[in-house]
Nucleic acid binder design. Sequence first.
DNA 1: GGGCGCATGTAATGAGTTACATGATTGA
DNA 2: TCAATCATGTAACTCATTACATGCGCCC
Lengths: 177, 177
Amino acid sequence: MENELLILGLLRKQEMHGYQITEFIDRNLSICTDLKKSAAYFLLEKMTREGWIIFEETRAGKRPLKRVYRLTEKGEGEFQRLLRENLAGYPPSAFGGDTGVAFLDSLDANEAQGLLRQRLAAIQQLADDLRDNPHHHGPVAWVVEHQQRHLAAEAEWVQTLIDRLSNSPEVHSEPII
Amino acid sequence: MENELLILGLLRKQEMHGYQITEFIDRNLSICTDLKKSAAYFLLEKMTREGWIIFEETRAGKRPLKRVYRLTEKGEGEFQRLLRENLAGYPPSAFGGDTGVAFLDSLDANEAQGLLRQRLAAIQQLADDLRDNPHHHGPVAWVVEHQQRHLAAEAEWVQTLIDRLSNSPEVHSEPII
DNA sequence: GGGCGCATGTAATGAGTTACATGATTGA
DNA sequence: TCAATCATGTAACTCATTACATGCGCCC
């Protein structure tokens, strides 16, 4: 439901057409989501069917037809509901990268360290990208800050793992059952 | 691919049947994944088709037929490949909860604080659940530690947000374009 | 004239979820 | 005897992804 919330939230502040929404997300909100174009169009259609939004077709000059969307009253209600639901809850986050860590004992310590150093570099890269990003204002800046903190913590964590592999090269693997 | 990696990694240490795998994951690895039964069966079928694993049908007493799976050589190769790929990379993690935060300026500070306090409680709950969990050994313990650190950082972050809402009750919402 | 940006979509595919179906054994 | 556990699966559905299709305008 986060994607619905996102689109409703954007349309609520300003009516927009599909392309504009996806461009805006790509440019300014790629930190908190990676909504693809076709997914966005799909959701716009779905939410139109459900009566949360409506569109008006407009044509500027001879440019292609645009569908400019805005919230209905029902959509405003859904936004309010989804926003509260989102803020009050905490979707338990699983990290895909943990699966590999769970089997670290399958590799010798040296190779494991090399791989984790690559992971560390990938994290640093993301952190650097974030710093170069256009700066934001209001609550979106908080989201950026959240990501920054998270990436810093992840880097620290991976470094800890690397260090531990140095100190105890033998991670003995016991039978799991 | 994390789910494939997970199943390969488990089967590699010990041959198992489907039910056993899902039970094991439910009981011991619910921290790092939430693989559902039908998804697991689906993957076992797929991986069998691809020749990564094979099964032998056995029947203990008059209990229902069991399909006991183990890795093929190809499966071992895939495991090695997927493990290195997983460890070397860092899948950029988006937090669903950030979508709500991005629209915090739609609510008055008091209500927002109340909702975030509920989120905080949900995080604490997860942290408590984790502490009561069966204790793990080897690299899985590291994964648990990772989750613990993450949850602690998240709690701290949400508390920061709550504090900021106290100090500056007016988060002025500017036009986003 | 050619390539990029604007603007909308469809089709195929994949991955995962929920709910349902089946049937035997074990334990209270 | 009744419920829970063991054990496997199917079906329908949702959601998202990739790749493709279309066509005009604008700028160099």
